[in-house]
């Protein structure tokens, strides 16, 4: 699912934004080794203070699995001020119908490690569909996007090849970076959808997203072990196995936190 966050609704999604900035830190500072500023485990730059729009891919548990950020090419944007090496001394593209997309990334670790319902390729395609549809709705005809060669290959392989490039490929961190052009046409959107088997609306309604996050927060963390006897046994085992005082305290705290569920008969009578 794709959620779009901007200055108008960002106060409703503090945890999603935090998750997103952490993902950006892992990808751009970690995996790609770009010269980005990390504070408190989050990658946030000057353009995040300019009220950009974020396109965020979420899994069923509302974890951020992909994200991108869009800015107008009419005003300040990354190709002018940060990625100017790509433009090689040339002035940037400027048009009210062209947006710049940056910080495009997918959480490959999370998708590969857990018993994920999606794949890197599908998550990438879903994010692309989100960016293209959101842009198309805003009267945007083309996106100029700063990506690394790996992402460029992913796009080409998923029937989503850029229709052109601007400037040149320059070394950046452990990889290199280039600026690709993608049209926001129905044709491209349906090709990407067909490639990844994405059907129906990918956009998550803002109110629905808030409701989902609230519902997940209320759900107790342990859901599989619903038999109180099993839970009781597990807690006792944890307390018995504790090797240090802090482990013991943590185990006791867990048992007390789960006490309502450990004594269903008692809680039923109150």
């Amino acid at each position: 699912m794709i959620l779009t966050i901007d200055a108008l609704n960002m106060h409703r999604f503090p945890t999603v934004l935090e998750d997103m900035f952490q993902l950006r830190a892992r990808v751009f500072a970690g995996r790609l080794g770009w010269d980005v500023t990390i504070a408190d485990g989050k990658e946030i730059d000057q353009f995040d203070k300019m009220n950009p729009s974020y396109i965020v891919g979420l899994d069923d548990e509302m974890n951020v699995i992909s994200c991108a950020r869009v800015l107008q090419t009419m005003g300040p944007h990354m190709l002018v001020d940060v990625f100017d090496a790509i433009l090689d001394g040339e002035p940037p593209v400027r048009s009210p119908n062209i947006w710049e997309s940056t910080r495009f990334c997918v959480d490959t670790q999370r998708i590969k490690s857990e018993d994920s319902k999606t794949t890197v390729s599908k998550a990438t395609c879903e994010l692309m569909v989100g960016i293209l549809e959101y842009s198309q709705m805003a009267g945007i005809t083309d996106i100029i996007t700063v990506i690394d060669p790996v992402m460029d290959r992913v796009l080409k392989r998923s029937d989503n090849a850029p229709h052109g490039y601007v400037g040149k490929t320059v070394p950046m961190g452990k990889v290199s970076a280039l600026a690709a052009l993608l049209d926001c046409t129905d044709e491209r959107i349906s090709k990407v959808r067909a490639f990844a088997g994405i059907e129906g609306d990918v956009m998550l309604d803002e109110d629905e997203a808030v409701a989902k996050i609230e519902a997940l927060a209320k759900t107790p963390p342990v859901t599989e072990m619903s038999d109180p006897k099993e839970l009781q046994a597990y807690c006792d085992e944890q307390i018995a196995m504790a090797k240090t005082e802090s482990e013991r305290e943590a185990a006791l705290a867990l048992r007390s936190a789960l006490s309502v569920r450990l004594t269903p008969d008692l809680s039923a009578t109150t």
């Binding site: 048009s95 119908n97 083309d142």
Partner: peptide, 13 residues
Amino acid sequence: RTVEVHVRSAREK
């Protein structure tokens, strides 16, 4: 399509 992007940008400028 890329020609069109350059034309759009030139028109704006």
